[in-house]
Structure formats: structure tokens, C-alpha cells
């Protein structure tokens, strides 16, 4: 029974208030994508022992989706942040590296942010 802080309404919510949504930061592949791309988007999921990024919905609260960075072994929560961001925010990355100095991001973030909304984060 985890507790996670909803970055939208600020409430520290118990797991019974939340609905899980699986791995965060998936990139959607639609028509025109290759079978490999679509397969990886729809089925291939990370199952790390350690740092993981997850989708959660404050289903029995404000109703908003948010993202959480946590350790699947120690259950430590590094932070929660808005769902409207294509990659973990710099604040979240810093919070993880403060606790896990050896951990490195495994994504390659484009240098220019091409998404329509600038990612804004609220961390614990």
C-alpha cells in the first residue's frame, strides 16, 4: 500500500485512492509505423529491479493522471510529476541521482524541446 503525492492536487494519497497505469513515457506509434516499433510500443515493457517510471491516476481524488519515479525494490519514491511531459524532468533526474549516484538515464532526450507544451514539474 504505497502512498504517492498527487502533483495536481497536492494530496498524499494512499494506494486505494489511485489507479495504476503501467510504464510511463511510452511513445505512441500509430499507422505507418513498422511492426517492430508498434510491438515495442504496445507490448514491450521494462521490468527493472530498481528505478522505474510509472503512470498513476488519482482516480478517487482529483481524477488527474500523474507520473511517479520510484525504486521497485526499496519502494523509495524519488518524486511525482505531471503526466504532461515526454521525459522525466531534470528535477526528477536530480532527485534520483542524489540517492542513486550510479544511475543514468537510458533515454536520449532531443536537445530542442519539440513538444507543444513545455514540461513543468512538481516534485516532492
Amino acid at each position: 500500500m504505497l502512498t504517492l503525492t498527487c502533483p495536481c492536487c497536492g494530496i498524499s494519497a494512499e494506494e486505494t485512492e489511485l489507479a495504476p497505469g503501467g510504464e510511463a513515457h511510452l511513445k505512441r506509434f500509430g499507422p505507418g509505423s513498422s511492426d517492430d516499433e508498434f510491438e515495442s510500443y504496445l507490448f514491450a515493457r521494462k521490468n527493472p529491479k530498481g528505478v522505474h517510471f510509472e503512470r498513476w491516476r488519482h482516480a478517487y481524488g482529483c481524477g488527474k493522471w500523474f507520473l511517479a519515479a520510484r525504486d521497485t525494490v526499496t519502494l523509495e519514491v524519488f518524486g511525482t510529476y505531471k503526466a504532461q511531459t515526454p521525459y522525466p524532468t531534470p528535477e526528477i533526474v536530480a532527485a534520483i541521482q542524489a540517492k542513486r549516484p550510479d544511475w543514468k538515464p537510458d533515454w536520449h532526450q532531443p536537445s530542442v524541446n519539440t513538444t507543444t507544451t513545455p514540461a513543468e514539474s512538481l516534485t516532492e
Binding site: 488527474k64 493522471w65 507543444t116
Partner: peptide
């Protein structure tokens, strides 16, 4: 609907 609106097409 909310999932897609909040997490994919939030703009």
C-alpha cells in the same frame, strides 16, 4: 478518454 486527453494529447 481522460487517459488519452491528459497523457497523450494534453494540448
Amino acid at each position: 478518454m481522460e487517459d488519452w486527453l491528459q497523457c497523450e494529447w494534453w494540448d
